[in-house]
Design a protein around this nucleic acid. Structure first.
Length: 424
RNA sequence: GGAGAGGUGCCUGAGCGGUUUAAAGGGAUGGUUUCGAAAACCAUUGUGGGGAAACUCACCGAGAGUUCGAAUCUCUCCCUCUCCUCCA
């Protein structure tokens, strides 16, 4: 959510943001609704003032005669105010609805573009492996080594269902342990967060109302989160934090659920795009300082890169074009890992900052040293998502003999150095 | 799931139809005092909207209702606590 004062003073910037993000939003309509709402509020408040004064008169009335007279006048006033209040409710609903749909302004450095194809690479790490044998994709590797059972997965969980088995499951747990250790060392507070949440948490983070199709909801009006960013951001909702406690850095760990509506036919094989997965997420609240946001954004991105380097996975970082930004995002980097079978990089991480877009919705503020109350700024980035990372993991570490080698960083969490073919 | 008790300002907690522009205590901030501190005393101390300002409106879990008037009465919902039941 943006500040209505900002929208009023800078309608051009908001219009430009909508254009750049390829979002259809009528700024002039919002401002018209806002002005109408304001006039109604003023009118209703004037009436309240008159009524408040009349109430004092009733209290101070010397006799019943006078009291009855004022009461009669009040009844008349009430009759007129009912219609106005009804009109206000309608206008206010419309105003609240529209305010949730105003896009945040992308940073000047965000390139033009419509979709992920227009994202631009800013750096690369790691050597793309040069295999001297026929490369297998991760689905084949998983099948050959009995690591993931997709057939039985779909039997139980439907399309995109899967069971992680044997070393695949152990590796996922090792990756969680490894990543957790990295984040705790960096001062992040590790947190197992709820994945079943109420509507407020999803509105607050900017996933609802506009992306309703992508979220699972339950029969009792709860929702399954697509990322622990949602519960972890909700953690401090309606709170006033202390400036000296900022930045607050959390490592959220939770199952994640995504309907993947709108991605029919994409990545139908394997563990890249599934309905249910597990993710470690970095979530940060900081002061309302643009420079600090930018600095922390780079830091969160580097943290994720460090983990990929530990996993010895070649990757590159792209800056997302404006059309590939979410409603609230100011700027986003995706980190994409090299996938040998596809001969391209695929997204494993997404690092973004929001300024106060989320914290306004969630009402997360802090007291400055001068005792001013300000909205905090928020950021988040993936830490590591499993089993998605198994796709580049299994493929990049595959060996000519069909085994998969385990990178050193994970060895202390596992009692094997490679995944060997199982004897029949 | 069943029964009961509650949700009030930064915290504890009073108020149960008009004197509440929310008592009292604690905390915090400033001041007096002091070589300095503690203690004591004095003062200040919520949020949001409108307005240049004076000022004004709203907010006592959320929403609706009764009333000239609601923190206070009624209804619905949400949440917390205690006990029981069940349970990984």
């Amino acid at each position: 959510m943006l500040d209505i004062k900002f929208i009023k003073e800078n309608p051009g910037q908001v219009k430009e943001a909508a254009r750049k993000k390829h979002i259809d939003f009528d700024v002039d309509h919002l401002l018209a609704v806002y002005e109408k709402r304001k006039k109604l509020i003023q009118s209703i408040e004037n009436l309240s003032k008159v009524k408040n004064q009349a109430n004092k008169e009733i209290q101070n009335a010397k006799d019943d005669e006078q009291r009855k007279l004022v009461i009669a006048q009040m009844r008349e006033l009430d009759r007129n105010s009912d219609a106005e209040e009804k009109e206000f409710k309608e206008i206010d609903n419309e105003y609240q609805r529209l305010m949730l749909l105003v896009p945040n302004i992308p940073d000047e450095s965000v390139p033009e573009g419509k979709c992920d194809a227009d994202n631009t690479e800013i750096r690369k790490w790691g050597k793309i492996p040069d295999f001297k044998f026929e490369v297998k994709n991760h689905v084949q590797i998983a099948k050959d080594l009995d690591l993931i059972d997709f057939e039985r997965g779909s039997k139980v969980a439907g399309f995109r269902g899967y069971f992680l088995k044997n070393e695949a499951m152990l590796i996922c747990m090792a990756i969680w342990n490894y990543a957790t250790e990295v984040f705790v060392k960096k001062g992040f507070v590790p947190m197992a967060a709820p994945s079943l949440v109420n509507e407020e948490a999803l509105i607050g983070t900017g996933y609802l109302p506009q992306a309703k199709d992508e979220v699972y909801c339950t029969h009792d009006g709860m929702y399954l989160v697509g990322t622990s960013e949602v519960p972890v951001m909700g953690y401090h909702s309606n709170e006033i934090l202390k400036e000296e406690d900022l930045p607050l850095k959390y490592m959220g760990f939770s199952p994640c659920f995504r309907t993947e509506i709108g991605s029919y036919g994409k990545d139908t094989q394997g563990v890249f795009r599934v309905h249910e997965f597990t993710k470690i997420e970095q979530v940060v609240l900081c002061r309302n300082d643009k420079e600090e946001s930018i600095r922390l954004h780079e830091e969160l991105t580097k943290n994720a890169e460090e983990i990929l380097q530990g996993l010895e996975l070649p990757y590159h970082v792209v800056v997302n074009c404006a059309g590939d930004l979410g409603l609230g995002q100011v700027k986003k980097y995706d980190i994409e890992c090299w996938v040998p079978s596809q001969n391209k990089y695929r997204e494993t991480h997404s690092s973004s900052y929001f300024f106060d877009f989320q914290t306004r919705r969630l009402n997360i503020r802090y007291k400055t040293k001068d005792n001013e109350t300000e909205f905090a700024y928020s950021l988040n980035n993936t830490g590591i998502a499993t089993p998605r990372v198994l796709m580049p993991f299994l493929e990049n570490h595959q060996q000519a003999n069909g085994s998969v080698k385990i990178p050193k960083a994970l060895r202390k969490y596992l009692n094997f150095k490679e995944i060997k073919p199982k004897r029949q």
